[in-house]
C-alpha cells in the first residue's frame, strides 16, 4: 500500500489517539460458551478418574465369571449388563479405560516430548541436523499407520508398554512437523535475535524463548493425537493384536461383542459408545483448543 494517510504516525508532535478512537472491544458478548468442549472435558475427566481409581471403586472384578450370561444393561446389579462369560460390563469398561487412557496420555506425552525436541532442533539449527531429522520423520511416515503398528506388535510381543511405545512412534511425525514449522517461524523474531545478541546459548534459547511459543499449537495437536491413538489402540485390540486377554480393553470387548451381534447387541453397543464418546470428546477439545490458539497467535 502506498497510502500516505494510513502510514503509522511517527511524528512526536502528533497526539496519542484520544480515548474516543480507541477500539471498542465488546467483551465476548457474542462468543457463546463451547458446551460441546465442556462436556468433552467432563467425560474425559470422569473416564480418567475412574480408570485411576478403578481398584477402589465398588466394582466387581472385571475378570470374575458369574452365571448371569449376556445380561442386557438395566438397573440393579450389573448396570451395563454382563458379557457372554458373565463378566460385569461396566467394570470391564472402566478397567478397559486404563488401556485406552494409558495409550492416549502416555503415548501422546512420549511422542510429544520426542517429536517436539526433534522438530525444534531441526527448525532451529536447520542444515544437516534438519536433513537427518527430516529423513527420520519421512521414514516413520513411509509406512501406512496401521501396518506400521501391526509390524511392531508382530516384532514385540503386545503388552501395555510396547503398545504405548509403538503408538508413541506413530505420533512423533505430527509433533515434529508442527514444532519445526513453529520454530522456524519464531526463530526470526526480534526476541530471539535479542537473546542471541545477549549471548544466550542455543539450549537456553530453545527452552526459554522458543518452547513456550511452540507449545501453544502443539497442545491443541496433542488432543487430536490422543483421539487418533485411542482409535489406533482400539483397532489393534479389535484385530486381537492388542493387550492380551484377559486384560479388558474396549477394542477387545467390541470384537467379542461382534460374535453375538444378533442376539446380544448390547455387548457391541456399550464399548462402541465408550469409543464414540471418548474420541468425540478429544476431537471437540481439539477443535476448541485450535480455535483459541488461532486467536492468540496467527500461526
Amino acid at each position: 500500500m502506498t497510502d500516505l494517510i494510513e502510514r503509522p504516525d511517527s511524528d512526536e508532535a502528533a497526539a496519542p489517539p484520544p480515548e474516543e478512537t480507541a477500539p471498542v472491544f465488546k467483551p465476548t458478548r457474542r462468543r457463546r460458551r463451547d458446551y460441546g468442549a465442556m462436556l468433552g472435558a467432563a467425560w474425559i475427566g470422569v473416564v480418567v478418574i475412574a480408570a485411576i481409581t478403578a481398584n477402589w471403586l465398588p466394582l466387581p472384578d472385571p475378570n470374575e465369571v458369574t452365571d448371569t450370561f449376556s445380561k442386557p444393561p438395566s438397573w440393579g446389579s450389573h448396570l451395563l449388563g454382563t458379557d457372554s462369560l458373565g463378566r460385569d460390563t461396566l467394570s470391564r469398561c472402566i478397567f478397559g479405560a486404563r488401556v485406552s487412557m494409558a495409550v492416549a496420555i502416555g503415548g501422546t506425552a512420549m511422542s510429544l516430548v520426542i517429536g517436539v525436541a526433534l522438530g525444534m532442533i531441526a527448525g532451529y539449527f536447520r542444515g544437516a541436523k534438519d536433513g537427518a531429522i527430516s529423513l527420520l520423520i519421512n521414514f516413520l511416515l513411509a509406512f501406512p499407520p496401521l501396518i506400521f503398528l501391526i509390524a511392531l506388535v508382530a516384532a514385540l510381543r503386545p503388552n501395555l508398554s510396547t503398545l504405548v511405545f509403538g503408538l508413541a512412534l506413530l505420533g512423533i511425525p505430527n509433533f515434529a512437523r508442527v514444532a519445526r514449522a513453529t520454530t522456524i517461524a519464531f526463530a526470526e523474531r526480534e526476541f530471539v535475535t535479542a537473546a542471541k545478541a545477549l549471548g544466550a546459548r542455543p539450549v537456553r534459547i530453545l527452552t526459554r524463548e522458543l518452547l513456550v511459543n511452540v507449545m501453544l499449537p502443539v497442545m491443541s495437536l496433542a488432543l487430536v493425537v490422543m483421539a487418533t491413538l485411542v482409535v489406533a489402540e482400539g483397532s489393534l485390540s479389535f484385530l486381537g493384536l492388542g493387550v492380551p486377554p484377559p486384560t479388558p480393553s474396549w477394542g477387545g470387548m467390541l470384537a467379542a461383542g461382534r460374535e453375538s451381534l444378533s442376539e446380544h447387541p448390547h455387548l457391541m453397543f456399550v464399548p462402541a459408545l465408550f469409543f464414540f464418546l471418548t474420541v468425540f470428546s478429544f476431537n471437540r477439545l481439539g477443535d476448541w483448543a485450535r480455535g483459541r490458539v488461532g486467536r492468540e497467535s496467527s500461526l
Binding site: 500516505l4 504516525d9 502528533a14 497526539a15 484520544p18 474516543e20 478512537t21 471498542v24
Partner: peptide, 22 residues
C-alpha cells in the same frame, strides 16, 4: 510528508458525535 494525526475511526458501535472529531 503531511499526514493526518491519529488513526481512522473504529466503527464498532461508534459513540455519538462527528467521527472525525478526534
Amino acid at each position: 510528508l503531511a499526514s493526518i494525526p491519529g488513526r481512522p475511526a473504529v466503527i464498532v458501535d461508534p459513540p455519538p458525535g462527528c467521527s472525525f472529531a478526534p
